[in-house]
Measured scan of single mutants.
Amino acid sequence: GATAVSEWTEYKTADGKTLYYNNRTLESTWEKPQELK
Rank of each mutant, 00 (worst) to 15 (best):
Y20Q: 00
T18M: 05
K12P: 06
R24Q: 15
Y20R: 00
Y21E: 05
K37I: 14
T29D: 02
S28E: 10
E7V: 08
T18A: 03
G16H: 03
G1W: 12
Y20W: 15
K12E: 08
E7I: 07
K32E: 07
E27W: 02
G16P: 00
T25P: 02
Y11N: 04
W30V: 08
L36H: 08
T29G: 03
K17N: 07
T18D: 03
T3H: 11
P33I: 02
R24L: 15
N22W: 00
E31N: 07
G16L: 01
S6M: 09
L26T: 10
T29L: 05
E10R: 03
W8S: 00
S28A: 10
T3R: 01
E31A: 06
K17M: 07
K32R: 11
Y20A: 01
T9H: 08
K17E: 06
Y21V: 15
N23K: 09
W30E: 12
T25N: 03
Q34T: 12
A2E: 12
G16R: 00
T18W: 04
Y11L: 14
D15E: 07
L19N: 03
R24I: 15
K12Q: 11
L26K: 15
S6T: 10
E7M: 05
K17W: 05
K17L: 09
T18K: 05
A4G: 12
N23E: 10
E10A: 11
V5C: 10
T3K: 04
A4H: 14
R24P: 04
A14W: 08
Y20S: 01
G16N: 03
T9L: 08
V5I: 14
Q34Y: 10
T13S: 09
L26H: 15
A4R: 03
E31I: 12
W30C: 04
L36R: 03
E7K: 02
Q34H: 11
E10N: 02
N23H: 13
L36C: 05
K32V: 09
Y21D: 03
V5Q: 13
D15Y: 04
Y21P: 01
Y11M: 11
W8D: 00
L26W: 09
K32F: 04
S6Y: 08
T25S: 02
E35Y: 07
L36V: 06
Q34K: 09
E31S: 06
G1Y: 12
W30R: 05
T29F: 08
K32Q: 09
T29H: 06
A2D: 11
E31Y: 06
V5A: 13
A2V: 12
E10S: 09
A2G: 13
T18G: 01
K12V: 12
T13K: 03
A14T: 10
A4E: 14
Y11H: 09
E10I: 15
T3N: 12
R24G: 10
N22F: 00
W30D: 09
K32N: 05
T25I: 01
Y11S: 05
Y20F: 05
T25M: 00
T9M: 11
N23M: 07
W8L: 01
L19Q: 05
T29I: 05
K37N: 13
P33H: 02
E35F: 06
E35V: 10
E27A: 05
E10K: 04
L36F: 12
G1P: 13
N22G: 00
E7W: 07
T9K: 06
Y11C: 12
Y20G: 01
T25G: 02
S6E: 09
P33W: 01
S28W: 15
L26M: 15
A2Q: 11
Y11V: 14
S6I: 08
E7A: 07
K12T: 14
K12C: 06
E31L: 08
G1Q: 13
K37G: 14
K37A: 11
P33Q: 02
K17P: 02
N22H: 01
T29E: 03
K17T: 09
